[in-house]
């Protein structure tokens, strides 16, 4: 029972188009799960199925060990990518209404809203109409409404869109705090640097299929190419480069340095170690820069999608 959400072989067809093809996932309790994929891959469909907005054609979904059912609506908080508020309703009234739809009592919703509004320093907006708020301001209200009923599972679809960097950081810290307080979070975005920052676990969906799934660090290990970025200084760089190219697979590298050094990416074959490389290089040159190239989430995304498309 370590996973809060379990998706088993979910299939969804729209007419003859298959939007999800036997997708299975497990989201560990108290983790942040990055649900990634190019546009139109099927992420939103999967999220809508989890939210019971539409039903799967095949497969099953379990929340907290129970088959997904209408009562679970109040255990889930969902911030959709396409989001908005009623324009001519007041902020406070609207927030209470949305909280009530999630099953909160009016008094409880009011009390909790006051705390959150205080925290986000937006208490003075209570009686403003939404149409008088800026986009970023409305997004803040939306975020609060999503998390207000303290759901076990939170689903954020592009939560940072529409925020300036300061507010994006505020929201990111809140998301991390929610995780630390025990919430499980599914996080869908195209901004890979934020995946890097917050996700423990990722799954990649491409063309209706899950093509990658796992702990982010494990996946990085899986995707690393044993390549090291080096900056070397020697008397004759040309000779050094020729020598190295005999022994290793090298490609030119680009990074900033203070010296006029030879910048290379050196790929080791299996069996060779970084220490071996270091020892060898130290006999030939002065080593100013030595770094293992770790694939970024962005690299993994692009590589996985490309590999998948070529198959």
């Amino acid at each position: 029972m370590n996973s809060l959400l379990k998706v088993e072989n979910v299939v969804k067809n729209y007419g003859t188009f298959r939007a999800l093809n036997k997708v299975s996932l497990e989201v560990a309790r108290g983790s942040i799960f990055g649900l990634l994929g190019p546009n139109g891959a099927g992420k939103t469909t999967l999220i809508r199925i989890i939210n019971q907005i539409t039903g799967p054609d095949e497969g099953q979904i379990f929340l907290d060990g129970e088959k997904l059912q209408p009562k679970h609506i109040s255990s889930i908080g969902y911030l959709p990518e396409e989001r908005g508020l009623y324009k001519n309703m007041k902020v406070g009234e609207q927030s209470i209404y949305l909280a009530q739809l999630k099953g909160m009592s009016e008094a409880n919703a009011k009390a909790k809203l006051k705390i959150w509004f205080e925290k986000f320093e937006i208490g003075s907006w209570w009686d403003k109409k939404v149409q008088d708020l800026s986009k970023g301001m409305a997004q803040k209200v939306q975020f609060i409404v999503t998390v207000l009923h303290e759901p076990k599972l939170l689903i954020f679809d592009e939560p940072f869109s529409g925020f300036d960097p300061i507010n994006a950081n505020l929201i990111r810290d809140e998301i991390l705090a929610l995780r630390d307080n025990g919430a499980t979070i599914i996080f869908s975005t195209h901004r890979m640097e934020s995946v890097e920052e917050v996700c423990d676990h990722i799954a990649l969906i491409n063309k209706s299929n899950k093509i990658l799934d796992g702990n982010l660090i494990e996946i990085k290990k899986q995707f690393k190419t044993n390549t090291y970025e080096v900056g070397l200084v020697a008397e004759d760089l040309k000779v050094l480069e020729a020598e190295l190219s005999q022994k290793f697979k090298i490609t030119p590298a680009v990074f900033k340095s203070l010296n006029n050094d030879l910048k290379l990416n050196i790929k080791l074959s299996s069996g060779e170690t970084s220490n071996g490389l270091l020892n060898y290089l130290s006999t030939k040159s002065q080593i100013n820069h030595f770094v293992e190239l770790v694939p970024t989430a962005n690299d993994i995304f692009i590589q996985a999608i490309n590999n998948n498309s070529h198959v």
Partner: peptide, 18 residues
């Protein structure tokens, strides 16, 4: 139509049945 153009519809139907 208003709910559609406001984009509030998905928020609402994640709480209630359409």
């Amino acid at each position: 139509i208003e709910e559609k153009t406001n984009r509030i519809i998905e928020v609402i139907i994640s709480s209630v049945q359409p």
